[in-house]
Simulated scan of single mutants.
Amino acid sequence: MDYSIGSDKLLEITYSPKLMSIVSIFPAEKPKTSYIERRNGSVSVNVAPAFDRWAYGKIPRLVLLYSCSLIMQHSQLVDFETRTIVFDESFRSFCRNSGLPYYGSLAGEVDDMLDRMLNTFVQIRGWFKNEDETIKAVANYRIFDYGEFHFNEHDKSKKTYIRFSKLLWRVLTEKCIPLNKTMASNLRSSRALDIYQWLSYRTYGLKGRVVVPWQNLRVQFEGDEIPMYRFKEQFLRALRTIQNSWTDLHVEILSEGVAMNPCKSSIRQLEACGKDAPAMESDGKTVTKDDGGFNPF
């Protein structure tokens, strides 16, 4: 992959970790359960908070997208040896760069969500074929190893910084997906942001029509916590907001699921402005139906 990109594109391109493009790591709303499970093919992800302090909504998603973007662009704010990112900027600038809408009480909300992310535990399970043997691999990690949060417009002496766990650092640095920054920021709902990341990943380099069953989509984005009719309503509402911005997106809503067709990437606007869009790997496979039997990693 070639992700070489100038620093002037910080406000034009954001990057999504591949895992976030496959399953929803964070719930859209605060769950009533002690943990959530999301599945995609042979990979399942369990997420649980400490002290019932869930990280949810759009803020945790944009924090990880922004962190991934700083890493991919080799920003001076990133210490690669210690896996640390320092948000060396005013809170207003942080909002502008991360895609958050700035308002007075937001700093406290961001501090709170960062603290909740610090206390979030993630487990990934995957089943892989090795010759004649099926192997189950399990990885457990916290999102952050350490963090200090000092978003204060009046006191610039202390910096907000986070140190990622080793496993999550791998998630943030391997096979990231380029997204249209403006589009990602303008999507108001966290569900729409999750679906946009997934569509960007699945449609890149797509050679043929792919049908994804509704049941696969529900366990990928919402788990089994809500009935199917409600999930479809939420999914279609979010999809319409994506289509309003991504006009070249070619999807069909079927009784059995959602059909995706080859289309132009949502970052084509950068090419129209004479700027190079980052490349992304594609397996180039033509698929007729997504039955959940593949390993997305």
Rank of each mutant, 00 (worst) to 15 (best):
L10D: 00
T14M: 13
T14F: 05
Y15C: 06
K18S: 09
T33I: 10
I36N: 08
N40H: 13
G41E: 03
S42G: 02
S42H: 08
P49T: 02
D52K: 07
W54Q: 04
V63D: 01
M72N: 13
M72T: 12
V86P: 00
F87M: 04
F87I: 10
R92W: 04
S93R: 15
Y103G: 03
R116G: 00
N119T: 02
F121E: 04
F121W: 02
Q123Y: 00
R125W: 01
A137V: 14
N140K: 14
R142S: 12
N152K: 05
E153F: 07
D155S: 04
Y161P: 01
I162G: 03
R163A: 06
F164N: 05
S165R: 09
V171T: 00
L172I: 06
T173E: 04
K175G: 08
P178Y: 10
P178K: 13
N180T: 03
N180G: 05
N186T: 07
D194K: 10
I195F: 14
Y201A: 11
T203E: 03
G208D: 13
Q215M: 07
Q215V: 10
V219E: 11
Q220M: 14
G223C: 06
I226D: 03
R230K: 15
F231A: 03
A238H: 03
T241S: 15
T247M: 12
V251D: 05
V251K: 07
G257M: 05
V258T: 08
M260Y: 10
N261V: 00
K264N: 09
K264Q: 08
K264E: 13
I267A: 05
E271F: 01
E271G: 04
A272F: 13
G274C: 09
E281W: 13
G284R: 10
G284D: 05
